[in-house]
Nucleic acid binder design. Structure first.
Length: 598
RNA sequence: GGCCCCGUGGUGUAGCGGACUAACAUGCCACCCUGUCACGGUGGAGAUCGGGGGUUCAAAUCCCCCCGGGGUCGCCA
């Protein structure tokens, strides 16, 4: 037996007891005759004292110890001498007087600090991930992640959900992201695809009468990585029969509020979760996943702009564009250089330009604004009344800076979004202690594909259209609203779901609108349509990203910090060194040959 | 593929044309030290400044190319 107790669990109640501990040397303080070792295990740290008067043999061991050596020791828990307590340590009132010690393993000097919170080059962290995991930050993130999934399991179990595993070698489906493919050895030239989500399988589970299904499902997408995107991520995948959209949203709200309460009781959760329509958030926040912890709402001023003498506005509007404004509070006295920075940000996000209007210095009311307080390259084209109207539209007052962008909504929203987030960042408007969840609803079901010009599913081809919009499928597919919904929090999309189509006639109709020929429909979706014809119940569900959920709960800005062994931006595993070349024999077995690439 | 940022002892930073034989902190090694807890003291080792080319009398510093990393756009139903 290596140990009777854990380091972090010792306290005053153990005084007098003889205990055995095992762990890592967090720090050594060698006073010559007397040596202190901070011994660390998963539960915490305790001070071990090596005293030559107690055990000369143990002291000999202590002298050999270095950081991260693995050690087991036996000794007596003692109250620390008066005046030597360490209030910074939970175990700081006691110490272990060591009688015996044994080095279980030595350790090379770590490439970075394990006992200090210092930013370290991420390459180094990832290469030595197992050392990074010893640090408190990563340890806490992984433990939080465990508590999150544990809570979800319990929550859904208590509500009658059945966990079902679905295969990870499945069939490639059209649309969506690029698939990861697995070559078949048994069937030359054939491939499995790793699931982007268990979408079809969970729908078939509903046809199978499971009624309430969930799974912690690993999902794979071969697309470029981002701060919140990994090629594989875990999703709380769930599906229910005989539910409406409202039923699903209710369940999710209950799940997430109780989850936050359980794992992060200090965080403030805004309830009930706002339900915002897609059209509404795109107008007010220029994003389908706005951070709602701060206002900074955008206003449409097309009707004001079209009456001005400013050619840029007139031309944009004539070309079918709109004009929108965002107020940057207290930025009215920005310098030329600062204005240039914002302009550059807007342009790099796709705007043709950014018109700024400075509303002077703060202190007076908007009604007292005068022409000479206004500074803008377009000042001479705008009347005082027009500037006031624009300021009023976005809730600005004197001392603020108006940020105005004109153009097609699709083009200017990314720029407005970038500006809004930049202003929030500069003034630290996002309260780190708030979790501002919201549901985004009423998404368009079908959108125009920019490249092909044809229709494509905005979400997935299985989303049920809003009932009253079904007739529009024949006339105005673009106007059809789907029964799908996103859950967002603090600027992250945590997941999405929908009520699915459960009748083959409607499913076929949608697929035809999306441009699928009968032959392709049968080949690609025949199994679904056939299943629907055997009495598929109405059903719907959700996929909630676990990684992002842990990100938002921990406050981490990067998904890699909530994953034990993540891929870097080049999709490489720096710990194992994956991907790696395959041997000729392996390729031959799989009936593969590599192309010579330049 | 585009754009932006970064690359200096093990780690984190400073230096941004000449006084750099590259500084500081920490870590590491040796010795000293019996109440420390980021222990303390003394001494020491450790970087050809991501790589290559160029400009210059002189380059860590300026320019070009490449490599690596990060962020972002495209992409991600």
């Amino acid at each position: 037996m290596y140990r009777t107790h854990t380091c972090g669990s010792l306290g005053k109640e153990n005084i007098g007891a003889t205990v055995s501990l095992a762990g890592w040397v967090n720090r050594r303080r060698d006073h010559g005759g007397l040596v202190f070792i901070d011994l660390r295990d998963k539960e915490g740290i305790v001070q071990a004292v090596f005293n030559p008067e107690i055990s000369p043999a143990a002291l000999k061991i202590a002298e050999q110890l270095r950081s991260e050596y693995v050690l087991t020791l036996t000794g007596e828990v003692a109250k620390r001498p008066a005046g030597t307590e360490n209030l910074k340590l939970p175990t700081g009132e006691i110490e272990v007087i060591v009688k015996e010690a044994e080095i279980l393993n030595t350790a090379n000097t770590p490439p970075f600090y394990i006992n200090e919170e210092v930013e370290v080059d991420e390459n180094v962290r990832l290469k030595y991930r197992y050392l990074d995991l010893r640090r408190p930050r990563m340890k806490e993130n992984l433990q939080l992640r465990h508590r999150v999934t544990r809570f979800m399991h319990d929550f859904l179990d208590a509500r009658g959900f059945t966990e079902v595993e679905t295969p990870t070698f499945i069939k490639s489906t059209p649309e969506g992201a690029r698939d990861y493919l697995v070559p078949s050895r048994i069937h030359p030239g054939y491939f499995y695809a790793l699931p982007q989500s268990p979408q079809q399988l969970k729908q078939l589970l509903m046809v199978g009468g499971l009624e309430k299904y969930y799974q912690m499902a690993r999902c794979y997408r071969d697309e470029d990585l981002r701060a919140d995107r990994q090629p594989e991520h875990t999703q709380l995948d769930m599906e229910m029969s005989f539910v409406t959209q409202e039923d699903v949203l209710q369940l999710l709200e209950e799940l997430y509020t109780s989850l936050a309460e359980a794992v992060k009781p200090d965080k403030k959760v805004i309830t009930p979760f706002p339900r915002l329509t897609y059209a509404d958030v795109m107008l007010r926040y220029a994003s389908d996943k706005p951070d709602l912890r701060y206002g900074l709402e955008i206003a449409d001023i097309t009707n004001i702009a079209e009456k001005t003498e400013f050619e840029v506005f007139k031309n944009a509007i004539a070309g079918g564009g709109v004009v929108r404004v965002l107020a940057a509070p207290g930025c009215g006295e920005y310098t030329r250089h600062q204005l240039d920075e914002l302009n550059q940000l807007a342009q790099s996000a796709g705007a043709k330009g950014l018109l700024t209007i400075s509303l002077g210095s703060p202190g007076s009311k908007l009604s007292e604004l005068t022409q000479d307080m206004i500074k803008s390259v377009a000042a001479k084209y705008l009347s005082l009344e027009q500037v006031k109207a624009i300021a009023e539209a976005c809730g600005a007052s004197t001392g603020d800076l108006l940020l105005i962008i004109a153009g097609e909504p699709d083009k200017i929203c990314p720029a407005l979004d970038a500006l809004r987030r930049e202003i929030a960042r500069r003034f630290e408007l996002a309260d780190p202690d708030v979790l501002h969840f919201a549901f985004i609803v009423d998404f368009p079901l079908i959108v125009r594909n920019q490249e092909t010009g044809g229709w494509e599913a905005a979400n997935n081809p299985f989303t049920h259209p809003r009932d009253e919009d079904i007739p529009l499928l024949d006339t105005d597919p673009e106007k059809v609203i789907g029964k799908n919904y996103d859950l967002i929090c603090n600027g992250l999309e945590l997941g999405s779901g929908s009520i699915r189509i459960h009748r083959s006639d409607l499913q076929k109709k949608i697929l035809k609108v999306l441009g699928y020929e009968d032959e392709r429909i049968n080949r690609l979706f025949g199994h679904m349509l056939e299943a629907f014809d055997f009495g598929a119940p109405p059903h719907g569900g959700f996929g909630a990203g676990i990684d992002r959920t842990v990100m938002v709960l921990s406050g981490e800005q990067n998904i890699r910090d909530v994953v034990a062994f993540p891929k870097n931006q080049s999709a490489m595993d720096m710990t194992l060194g994956a991907p790696s070349p395959a041997a000729e024999e392996q390729l031959a077995e799989l009936h593969l040959r590599l192309l010579d690439e330049e």
